[in-house]
Design a protein around this nucleic acid. Structure first.
Lengths: 335, 335
DNA sequence: CTGAAAGCGCTTACAG
DNA sequence: CTGAAAGCGCTTACAG
């Protein structure tokens, strides 16, 4: 394989100095259009490829944003990753992605690698648990970092946090179920010690208290498999339960399958609401009511906030909450 | 923010030359253990971070692998991306990901950005359509590149291709349905002009021909939404149809919902089989039979092949097919 | 509007 | 086992 051509080769071919080539590369207006075209022709003829490593070394940015996700297999996060990546690509940034798989040690290692690569910024939905080994190096390196969907480091001045207004959403969903005449509403899925569960339960608890009703809690993983199992347990152990608000859509969709297996008619015998409103909610049978968190819009807003920080030094506010709203469908309304 | 410490700073602090520091960084055995420890202490004290851009410029590799996926929102590809990323991370490579969204122009642009970043290798599941603008620059730059799951560039000596043995899988699935006594088996979803559809249909057509049966074809997108719609159409237009093999699980899961809506009992009135065997197949109701393509194993094999190419120059064979097998469940077997 | 020169932080022969 | 020196391909003041 031949050596890749450099700006020196391009300069020689175009009959200018390499500074001029560099200026053309930057799109500087101080090069005559005619000259610039000469340079661009030379680049094309030589198959020139910009060498970012060299540019980076000299002081410019790498053009890389690191994205660390705790569970890349969850469609909610996948949608976030895909939308964020596309918004950043439109602004000229490539996205380095990694899945911490809810493992803080792995997460710290992955973050170390990203810092070595010189990422310009980081977006992280952190794994639960010890956060220092991941965040301290970011603070030391002064890398703009956004915490999304989960706050694991309290230094929100350094690592601004944004998420959805979950408490509002669960209150709205719970009031909706109460308004339909349900008597015993369960909250299914999620680990009680996690802040996101607490937020999603807060509105539920408040709405029940308003109505003088007792909560019914089935904690568990946030997966389809748990929902399937929860459907069985709830029928066996709580026959009076006539509605469920689920931690997320995966749990609710698992319950939907589990209740079908039990011969329970969802929407009348049991009313069901999920959380996140992933695409599948409108495509299940019956269609699943859900608290809509528009993750694609959230991802674009996150990209915009990050780009503002990178280009204009606009540090985002320490904590932001995006609005959510209930999308009622057949699983709670009935047919 | 203070300037990041460099090997010169580390060298000064440790009282050695910067060559020595560099050798320690490489883990060279020619530095005395004692000296190496001195250097490592200095690094820790200064909070030294390795600068890859500088190392790259001098000739070593960037430690970056590019991954380009045509549809990152499909759980099958998500699983592939997550597994591949984790296998590469274990070998010290970071993964730059991007979603071409089935758009060849975008794909070419993204690939250009990856080449600029100096990726050491590329794994691509290419978008359908014109491939030259994406692959030619890779050939020119001599970047090891693997085509997976779809072959869009015929130069498999340059861009080795690996996928699953789809034809075998669809033949097995079709024979299974015939063995259960079904009379009219549809193949639902997928665009006829795409090679992957042709492969998945090949075994179906062959098995039907063996049995002297007529094919029934409903082409369409490869999404839940199409499956939902196909269920309605198939009942309205082909009341004699008593089985369906679907292009993938998403279509089959959409059909599952659609058939439930139509009041059709899946597993007896209509037997259904998906393709890919994503996790959800075992969690739906009824459970979905599917042709299992173990994408996590495939991803790890892909990572191994790529790492072999990068480290030992082992070019993978031009075309490889991983075995698949039918996982029969209630949607075809009945209860 | 364009050119000559220094320097970014490493790695790598080459001496010693 | 360790040090001095050159050079990777760019960008950026600084002259002209």
């Amino acid at each position: 394989m031949k050596r890749r051509p450099t700006i020196t080769d391009v300069a020689a071919r175009a009959g200018v100095s390499k500074s001029t080539v560099s200026l053309v590369l930057q799109g500087s207006p101080q090069v005559r259009a005619e000259t610039a075209n000469l340079v661009r022709d030379a680049m094309r003829e030589l198959g020139y490829v910009y060498n970012r490593a060299a540019a980076t070394l000299r002081g410019s940015s790498v053009g890389l944003v690191g994205l660390v996700i705790n569970d890349l297999r969850n469609p909610f996060f996948t949608e976030f990753a895909a939308s964020l990546q596309m918004a950043l690509a439109a602004a000229g940034y490539a996205t380095v992605i990694s899945n911490s798989d809810e493992n803080t040690a792995l997460q710290a290692k992955l973050m170390g690698s990203m810092i070595e690569h010189g990422v310009d910024a980081v977006v992280i939905c952190p794994a639960h648990g010890e956060a220092g080994a991941t965040f301290d190096p970011l603070a030391r390196a002064g890398i703009p970092t956004l915490q999304v969907l989960r706050k694991m480091d309290e230094r929100t001045d350094l690592f601004p946090f944004s998420s959805f207004d979950y408490a509002h959403g669960s209150a709205e969903a719970t009031r909706h179920l109460i308004g339909l005449g349900t008597r015993r509403i369960a909250f299914v899925g999620g680990q009680d010690e996690r802040s996101i569960t607490q937020e999603r339960m807060a509105g539920y608890s408040a709405a029940l208290a308003e109505a003088g009703m007792e909560p019914l809690r089935l904690p568990g993983r946030t997966s389809r498999a748990f929902g399937l199992e929860a459907a069985r347990r709830i029928r066996a152990e709580h026959p009076d339960c006539d509605a469920a608000l689920c931690f997320n859509d995966l749990v609710a969709l698992g319950m939907l399958a589990g209740l079908a297996r039990e011969g329970v008619v969802v929407g009348s015998d049991m009313r069901l609401i999920g959380f996140d409103d992933i695409e599948e909610c409108a495509l299940s049978w019956p269609q699943l009511s859900s608290v809509s968190c528009d993750i694609a819009v959230f991802a674009r807003d996150t990209a915009a906030a990050l780009l503002g920080w990178l280009s204009d030094g606009q540090i985002p506010p320490p904590e932001q909450r995006a609005a959510v709203h209930l999308v009622p469908r057949a699983s709670s309304l009935g047919n």
